[in-house]
Amino acid sequence: MKKVYVLSQNIFSPLGTTAKENFDALCKNVTGVKVHQDPQQSEVPFCAALFEDLFFKKQQAPFTRFENILAASIEDAVKLAGIDTKAADTALVLSSTKGNISLLEHQPVTEVLKQEIGLTASAQKLARHFGFQNKPVIVSHACISGTLAIITAKRLLDAGKFKTVVVAGADVISRFILSGFQSFHAVSDELCRPFDAQRKGINLGEGAATLVLSTEVPASAEPIMISGGGVSNDANHISGPSRTGEELFMAIDRALKEAGSPAAAIDFISAHGTATLYNDDMESRAINLAQLQEVPVNSLKGYYGHTLGAAGLLEAVISIESLGNNTIIPTKGYEEPGTVMPLNVCRELIRKPIRACLKTTSGFGGCNAAIIIEKIKDRQQ
Rank of each mutant, 00 (worst) to 15 (best):
A265R: 04
A259C: 02
A265G: 07
A265P: 08
L248Q: 10
E258N: 06
G273V: 11
N279S: 13
D253T: 09
N279G: 13
D267P: 14
D267M: 05
A255D: 07
K257G: 07
E246Y: 00
A263M: 05
A265Q: 09
L277A: 09
S261L: 12
M250G: 03
F268Q: 03
D267C: 04
A264W: 07
G260T: 05
D267S: 15
E247C: 12
A263P: 02
D267K: 08
A265V: 05
N279F: 14
G245R: 13
L277K: 13
F249D: 07
T276Y: 08
D253C: 12
E247G: 03
E247V: 01
I252E: 06
I252H: 03
T276L: 05
N279Q: 14
T276K: 06
F249R: 04
R254S: 13
G273N: 07
I266A: 10
T274A: 15
M250P: 01
E258F: 06
I252D: 02
R254I: 06
I269C: 05
A251G: 07
E258Y: 09
P262A: 12
K257P: 10
L248V: 03
G273M: 00
F249L: 09
A271P: 00
M250Y: 10
P262V: 07
T274R: 05
L277S: 13
A259P: 02
T276H: 11
F249V: 01
L256S: 06
Y278T: 09
L248R: 05
E246L: 04
S270Q: 14
A275Q: 09
L277G: 04
M250I: 02
I266G: 11
I252V: 13
E247I: 03
G260F: 04
L248C: 07
R254L: 02
I269T: 03
A255G: 11
A275P: 01
E247K: 15
L256M: 08
N279M: 09
M250A: 14
L248F: 01
A265L: 04
Y278L: 15
A259H: 03
T276S: 12
R254M: 14
I252G: 04
L248P: 06
T276I: 14
Y278I: 02
I266Y: 09
G260R: 04
A264H: 07
S261N: 06
A255Y: 04
L256P: 07
A265E: 14
A263L: 02
D280M: 07
D267F: 06
A263G: 13
S261D: 13
A255W: 06
